[in-house]
């Protein structure tokens, strides 16, 4: 982390519930321009919930806290407004849109970002073909229906393809690495690395350390039970790979014993 860094994305004390259950219990996170942060955590720790809330999923109830992006308060904005401001979420489980081709979908998404509402078709085609080449997807991809009958790997590639085409400033990737064989993982990682820039920040959600061999994060966080419980460098991911999550749990438990304060405030 550089010292003259500008925060692009700031989350403070974010508390979120769904159906009355508090899932996120006070998350703090600051990501500077150009940084890649990884969030690791077991299944059910609240990673996807966080991704959804940051993107403005309407089903979640924000109980407390703030989310700032480019200095703007995101919690007041609808999902599409956030997207047009340059936020992007690569879904853990992308939805299928039968009857809508990948090309049509991407073209519409790009047009939605333009004030004129127009994106020249030829230029779009050229860019799309380039992006597909780079990600090693077949050119037939463009005329298939969005995620309809796609394999797990194809879905993840399409998420990255979208990220490429939309060129967002802040990307959240929710387990884009899971369910991929090593070749697919490498392609996805190459895609992510190619997107890396001074201005663009990313939040890489994963529960395997594996992807971090290919994409080097600046900061690694551990999420447990709806909170970020550890923050460190790449060595934190390596420790997790070797020792699992139990030692963190034990440390947290000992702290609780020592101070007499529960980790769960609610």
């Amino acid at each position: 982390m550089s010292d003259n860094s500008h925060p692009l994305f700031e989350v403070q004390n974010l508390k979120v519930a769904i159906d009355g259950n508090e899932i996120l219990r006070g998350v703090d996170l600051t990501i500077n321009e150009g940084e890649i942060h990884a969030i690791m955590g077991r299944n059910g720790s609240g990673k996807s919930t966080m991704a959804y809330v940051l993107m403005g999923h309407p089903h979640y109830e924000v109980l407390d806290g703030s989310v700032k992006y480019k200095g703007l308060d995101m919690l007041d904005l609808d999902t599409d407004e956030r997207a047009r401001l340059g936020m992007f979420l690569a879904f853990q489980y992308p939805m299928s849109i039968p009857g809508v081709t990948v090309a049509k979908f991407l073209h519409s998404a790009l047009k939605a970002r333009e004030e004129s509402g127009e994106v020249a078709v030829r230029e779009f085609r050229t860019n799309l073909n380039e992006a597909m080449n780079l990600l090693g997807v077949d050119s037939s991809f463009a005329s298939r229906y969005v995620n309809d009958g796609f394999s797990g790997g194809e879905k993840k590639r399409l998420e990255i393809l979208q990220m490429f085409m939309l060129e967002p400033d802040f990307c959240i990737l929710d387990e884009t690495d899971s369910g991929l064989d090593i070749d697919a993982l490498k392609t996805v990682a190459e895609g992510v690395n190619a997107m890396r820039s001074e201005q663009r920040s990313m939040l890489l959600i994963t529960h395997y350390q594996r992807v971090l061999n290919y994409v080097k994060p600046d900061v690694v966080h551990v999420m447990m039970d709806g909170k970020i419980v550890r923050t460190g460098g790449i060595e934190l991911a390596e420790t997790l790979e070797e020792n699992g999550y139990e030692w963190i749990e034990q440390e947290l438990f000992q702290n609780t014993e020592a101070t007499g304060i529960g980790t769960a405030e609610a």
Binding site: R82, S108, R113
Partner: peptide, 19 residues
């Protein structure tokens, strides 16, 4: 489905029309 489309920048109405 709508959330997915809107996360790409389409308004809710555009998303509905697309579906």
């Amino acid at each position: 489905q709508l959330f997915y489309l809107m996360s790409r920048g389409l308004t809710e109405e555009e998303a509905l029309v697309m579906v």
